[in-house]
Computed example of a mutant assay.
Amino acid sequence: MPLPTIIVPGYLETAIAYRQLEQSLVQLGIPTITVPLKRRDWLPTIGGRPVTPIVQQIDRTVKQMLQQHNSPQVNLIGHSAGGWISRIYLGEQPYAARGQVISSCWKAYPLVANLITLGTPHISQERWTRWNLDFVTNNYPGAFYKDVRYVCVAGKTIFGARKPGCWLAYSSYQLTCGQGNTWGDGITPIAAAHLEGAENIVIAGVRHSPRSPGIWYGSPEPLQAWMQYLL
């Protein structure tokens, strides 16, 4: 029986956007739920402020699934920012934000078998997100917990360039990894979406968000490339 699986939404995203992915996994026999985030839940985190309210909701959802399925562990699927926020949740260090020490420390790594990140920017040059990402990188570099399998999925879809149709990708890649002329999913460059020591995957043709036109990481065909880690 596959472990229960929890989808962690990307920044400012709601659970509704992941309903199709959730249903696809359930149809494959994988009990799945999305952290029940609403747009207003993200408001306290805007401007690089602590993501503590999101991590607390992840924790409640994990505990719910462990109890409901009488399981010792879960899988986490973190889309975009949901991936690095999940890495905070796994960790043992008190989460401090902009010099303010917060006593919250979830130490959830024994509860997680697999962490799959989809288009997650694991690094950033952008000043509003850099503090949080530096906290993760400095405390939990790479595939940090050896008993957790990290699977990092990147998209090779749009090459960033200073020309029509590629400007958004160029700007986003530049803010993320410091280089605009590179490949990515239109928002996250491949260079930022992978972690040292993880099982790193590149899928051609996928766009960043479930709200993007065309296919994204959770669409039926790309799903075939990474769902094996949940079975």
Rank of each mutant, 00 (worst) to 15 (best):
D134K: 05
V151W: 04
L195Q: 13
P141M: 13
Y217E: 05
N181T: 03
T182F: 01
P189W: 01
G186N: 04
A154G: 14
K146C: 08
S212D: 13
E221L: 14
A161S: 08
P213C: 03
P210S: 09
Y173F: 12
R162P: 02
L175E: 01
S172R: 10
A193H: 09
G165W: 01
A161Q: 11
G160P: 04
L195C: 05
T176W: 04
I203M: 07
Y145K: 10
W167I: 12
V151M: 07
C166A: 12
A161T: 02
W167C: 02
T176H: 09
S212E: 02
V202H: 05
G180C: 04
P164W: 10
N181E: 13
A143Y: 12
S171R: 15
G186K: 07
G155M: 00
Q224L: 15
T137C: 09
V153W: 09
N139T: 03
C152F: 11
A169F: 00
Q179E: 14
V148M: 12
Y145W: 15
G186E: 10
T137S: 14
G165P: 05
P210H: 11
Y145D: 08
C166Q: 11
A154M: 07
Y173G: 06
G180W: 02
G155S: 06
N181K: 00
T188R: 05
E199N: 11
Y140M: 04
V148L: 14
W216R: 06
Y140N: 04
I215E: 13
V153A: 01
S209K: 01
L195R: 06
P164M: 07
N181V: 01
A191M: 12
R211G: 15
I215T: 14
P220W: 02
H194E: 14
Q174A: 10
Q179V: 14
Y217G: 03
L175C: 08
D147N: 14
H208A: 03
P141F: 04
G160K: 04
L175G: 12
W167R: 08
K146Q: 13
Y170E: 10
P213V: 09
T188F: 06
S172A: 10
